[in-house]
Design a protein around this nucleic acid. Structure first.
Lengths: 210, 210, 210, 210
DNA sequence: CATGAATGAGACTTCATTCAT
DNA sequence: CATGAATGAAGTCTCATTCAT
């Protein structure tokens, strides 16, 4: 199709392809992104893709793994060392919001995470694991705060982590759904105020019921 | 899902079909559910489906509308009249959890809500509107609490509603992702304690130091 | 679908339907006109059409027969009695042009006449017969002219009729193809001048040098 | 139609396919020719057709373009240089009759040309353009005759071209409609006698009225 | 007479995937 | 490594037609 001298667009095979692929996936959705589209975006033919990846699914998997790794790195990298647990929780939320608003990749990942639940077992497992690690990371921070004494000790760090993860993700989704009018930052900040306030309140004596 | 004894032929045309359809969609996902599959499940031929619905998309739309209406009804019906704002918020969450755990329809709806964002403009709009109504409903309850004096007046009822909606939805998604090991009820209850506690604290009458 | 009191649109079944049908056919073409479309245009349901006509094809056949009859009537009615053969030929052309430019029915008929050739044997036969009658009619006029002595006797009236029929039809088609810029009237008039001139020239009584 | 020995697999992709396709179209009509039929005739699968052509329509378009080009080539090739304008007009008619009687492709083209008018805008435009070129070609020949002095100068070369094109096409259609009994050659020859005679008659003084 | 529901066959089209060169 | 050509299965949709009520 391309005659004569076409500047070879790719140099390191797989890696470049996953980047291009996730771009396409993020723009059109997984199903609606045909191999042909990715191939075209990469300046290759479909056959070439199959040299690098057994499957469309494997391509997706690789692409998602890439992004996930990047995300996890950017969370842990910027947080450590978490001198102050409260501040750390705010930092993590900031990183999430950053990702959420700066490109559509994060949005695709979240979308896919939900989609994959009943669609792609292998991917679902990967996401499950990622969320598991994420919540584990949060839990550690909360436990740290508890050990430090800045966080109350009468709450399950584990459940608290779940609440946090859910609140941030739920806010994100509302934002994706309606970016024009949903105030993502305000919502998350309000949540953080309330959440961190709750964790820091030190009334072991005052039992919460139910 | 199909109630009791279905007499080989459908009687309520569209209505029955949307029920059957959403069952299939919920089990296999939208894309993976072929018209043929729905037709078979309904004991009809493909053509019959197209007699009732112009499109696969319209069938989805109708099916989703049905469910949404049902959900909204079950929320408003069981809540009104909301004598006590705090209790009302807990009730709503209970209804959501109920739907979330009793059938896969709700799960499908939530999944689809995310999927549709970049996939189906008309549906996305419907979900946007539904979420809008839902948050509006929550906001009214919160404002009621504020007027009653049981909720603090120094927070934006609107943002508070967003926080609530996000936290519940985020928890649900984590549960859908990992129903075996994610403690949905615990997470939501913990959130509610903290959230309602936050709303009830600090209102004029009740002095608070620090 | 139609509730309560709908003003019965049709009174004499078949006849009304053929009129409506040919309107649709002329607008969208035969294949592209579904029974549903005709039914809707008639304010009926598909089933009702099948009460009156065995087939879509029969409906077309009946509709075409109607039009053809009308056309033939309008040709013979306005021509008779053909005092002057030359003038009669001009009259006939005028009638054709009239039909050609005043509605899209004639255009549909011509289109269909060509289409039907390899598509619909029964219809093709009907058109063949119609053209046969038309050419026969022309031939008679020419023979009349020959007997009268106003037309030359050394040409086959039959072939002359064929030439005439073809020239008019060919002009029409060019016009249908490009109504904006094809000068139908001019073309046919020029043809008639030349054709009638040819028929009138050289006949025995009327000496002609060179 | 496919020349000589086709080695089980096609070699010239598109070109071969257009040939096979037009064969099918000419035999069964456009609508009645399914992609499956063409694929089978080509010894390929449906998918292969879609590799080469985006659409059934594009396949038709390509096939028609091919034929049209061939026709135009065979007209211009065999005519040039038109030493004698009168003879050239007879030659062109001969080429048309040749095409008309030797294969059903020409017949299909003419049929389609009429069908396409209200059915396929792009194709209609192509036919319009072709007819435009054809009439232009004829006009030039007539003008040549006029400059040479062998044709009378008091007629519009343009309208004369239209008359010629229509008469030949109209004769053809009558022939297609009834090949057994319609005398195509006789009709066209009679027309040519009369037409060329008319053009050659040099009476500027003898005005034709209306 | 007419309707509404349903059928069934077939059409077009898409796409992941394969493979010889 | 890469391409171009091809496959084959599946999917969505259309439509003439039938029939019980």
């Amino acid at each position: 199709m391309a005659d004569a001298a076409r500047p070879a667009r790719l140099e390191n095979g797989r890696r470049d392809l996953t980047n291009i692929a996730i771009d396409c996936f993020a723009r059109y959705g997984y199903k609606a992104t045909s191999i042909a589209r990715i191939a075209e975006a990469a300046g290759l033919t479909k056959g070439a893709i199959y040299y690098h990846f057994r499957d469309k699914e494997e391509l997706l998997f690789a692409a998602v793994s890439d992004r996930l790794t990047q995300f996890e790195r950017s969370v842990t990298a910027q947080i450590l060392p978490p001198a102050d647990a409260g501040r750390a929780l705010r930092e993590i939320a900031r990183v999430c919001l950053d990702h959420a608003t700066k490109s559509n990749h994060r949005r695709f990942i979240v979308t896919l995470m939900v989609e994959a639940i009943d669609t792609n077992a292998r991917l679902a497992e990967q996401f499950r694991a990622m969320m598991h690690r994420f919540r584990g990371f949060l839990r550690e921070i909360i436990e740290l705060g508890q050990r430090e004494g800045s966080f109350r000790g009468d709450v399950s760090a584990s459940v608290a982590a779940d609440v946090y993860a859910g609140a941030v993700m739920g806010a994100e989704i509302q934002y994706y759904q309606d970016p024009e009018s949903f105030d993502l930052e305000g919502t998350v900040n309000t949540f953080l105020d309330q959440y961190v306030g709750w964790l820091q309140r030190d009334h072991p004596q005052r039992a919460e019921r139910r």
